[in-house]
Amino acid sequence: MDDPLQILLVEDNRFFQKLISDFAEFHGFDLQIAENGKVAIQKLQQHQFNLILMDVEMPEMDGYEATEFIRRQMPHAQHIPIIMITSHEHPVHATKSLLTGANSYLKKPFREDDLLKEIETLMIG
């Protein structure tokens, strides 16, 4: 049996944390939560993840800053796919997400099927 997918959710909204936790449990994924980019970086130093779900707007260190830091300063984590998540409508946020090093971008609210498809695309190729 394969090991479960190790996902780091970087999100400060408790409601969204619960939604993604339920999603991960249903699909057999192992999920850890970081409430901001600084905590995410600490967790990345202590644990191996297969995927990062990164909210854009958070206190202390936002998703853009955290993604840039991971891509530039954390060689052991540079390969981990990052899906940037935001509630912003404007396309500039998708572009900025990709420019900071994210692999893909989802706009909240999204359907579980959309998230699962993104995960499959990034993890399977």
Results as ranks from 00 to 15, higher is better:
L9P: 00
F26G: 07
Q48P: 05
M123I: 15
L19H: 07
E112I: 04
K117T: 09
Q46P: 08
E120W: 13
G28H: 10
G63A: 09
F29R: 05
M58R: 03
Q48F: 13
T86R: 01
D2Y: 11
T100M: 03
L5G: 04
P91F: 03
Q45M: 15
D55W: 01
Q17S: 06
K43H: 10
P59N: 10
Q48E: 15
M123A: 11
L99Q: 12
E25K: 15
H90M: 10
I85Q: 00
P75E: 05
H47D: 06
L116F: 12
E11S: 06
G28W: 11
E68H: 07
D113S: 15
E68G: 03
T95S: 14
M123W: 11
D113N: 14
Q32M: 14
F110P: 02
Q6V: 07
L8M: 08
V92F: 10
I83W: 00
M54P: 01
P109I: 02
D113E: 15
F49Y: 15
E89D: 15
I82Y: 01
I80L: 08
P75L: 07
I41D: 03
G28A: 12
I119M: 13
K117P: 01
V10H: 00
L31M: 13
Q17V: 06
T95G: 06
T100E: 01
G28T: 11
H88L: 13
E57M: 13
A66G: 03
K43Y: 07
M61Y: 05
R111P: 00
M58G: 01
N36I: 08
H76K: 13
N50H: 15
N103L: 06
E89H: 12
H88A: 08
F23D: 04
D12T: 08
F15E: 13
P81H: 02
R111F: 09
L106R: 04
E118R: 09
H90W: 06
L51H: 10
F110W: 07
H47G: 04
K117F: 08
V10Y: 00
M61V: 07
N50A: 14
F69V: 05
V92N: 09
L9W: 00
F69K: 06
R71F: 03
Y105W: 10
D30M: 15
L116M: 13
A66Q: 01
S104A: 11
F49D: 02
I7P: 00
V10R: 00
E89Q: 14
P91I: 05
P75N: 06
E112Y: 15
A94N: 09
E11P: 01
R72K: 14
I20M: 10
N13D: 13
F110Q: 02
H76Q: 13
E25P: 02
L115A: 02
L8H: 02
E60K: 11
Q6G: 08
F23P: 03
T67M: 03
T95Q: 15
L44F: 09
R71I: 03
G125A: 10
R14W: 09
L115Y: 02
H76F: 08
H93S: 11
L44I: 10
R14L: 14
